[in-house]
Amino acid sequence: MRSTLLVLFLVGLFSCKEKQLSPEELQPLVGKWRVTSIQPAGKTEWEFVTQSGQHQFEIRYDGVILGPDGLPICCGPKYLKVNGKVFTIVPKEGLPDNPLCALVNCVGCETLEMDLQGDGLTTNTCNGSGRSRYERI
């Protein structure tokens, strides 16, 4: 009886594990992205962004997210969830300090949810403030 319960517990535990994204599967996401439109929370319409020069970021080969200045973003996520699969961000090389981060009180999200379709990327904010669409640059 105990062994049956243990087997059922282990099967349940391992069947609930999230699908992991491999470094190879992350490669289509690597590169620079520029915002094209936003969808504020509670709205169904997308608003186009015309001055998107400041709203750019880069995803490195190891998942690290860099701002337009090449410095790591403040309060960056620990995980990327891309098309339902999770990738754990582990920097493979050193990162310079971003002096702006000393001025920021981080209450960021551990997981950044993304939907990647070709050269289009949609992100969801974890605090419910809306979604953003990006294009590869």
Rank of each mutant, 00 (worst) to 15 (best):
T125E: 03
L6C: 08
Q20A: 15
G53A: 12
P99G: 05
E113D: 13
V82L: 15
W46R: 15
E24F: 09
H55G: 10
V86C: 13
G12Q: 04
G108F: 13
F14S: 09
L103D: 05
Q51D: 07
C126H: 10
N83V: 00
E110S: 04
G130F: 05
G128C: 05
D115A: 10
T36R: 10
G84K: 12
T44Q: 07
G128S: 05
P96T: 01
E45L: 05
K17D: 06
F14D: 08
S132R: 09
L121I: 02
K81G: 00
E93D: 13
L116I: 09
T122W: 08
F87C: 02
K19E: 15
L10N: 03
Y79H: 11
N127W: 06
Q54E: 04
L95P: 07
A102L: 11
T36Y: 06
I65S: 04
L29V: 01
T111I: 09
G130Q: 06
L29R: 03
L103V: 00
S22D: 14
S37H: 10
G118S: 11
A41N: 04
N124E: 14
G94Q: 12
D62M: 06
G76D: 11
K78S: 15
M114C: 02
E25F: 14
P40K: 14
K32N: 09
E24K: 12
R133V: 00
G108H: 08
C106I: 07
G31M: 13
V49Q: 04
T88A: 15
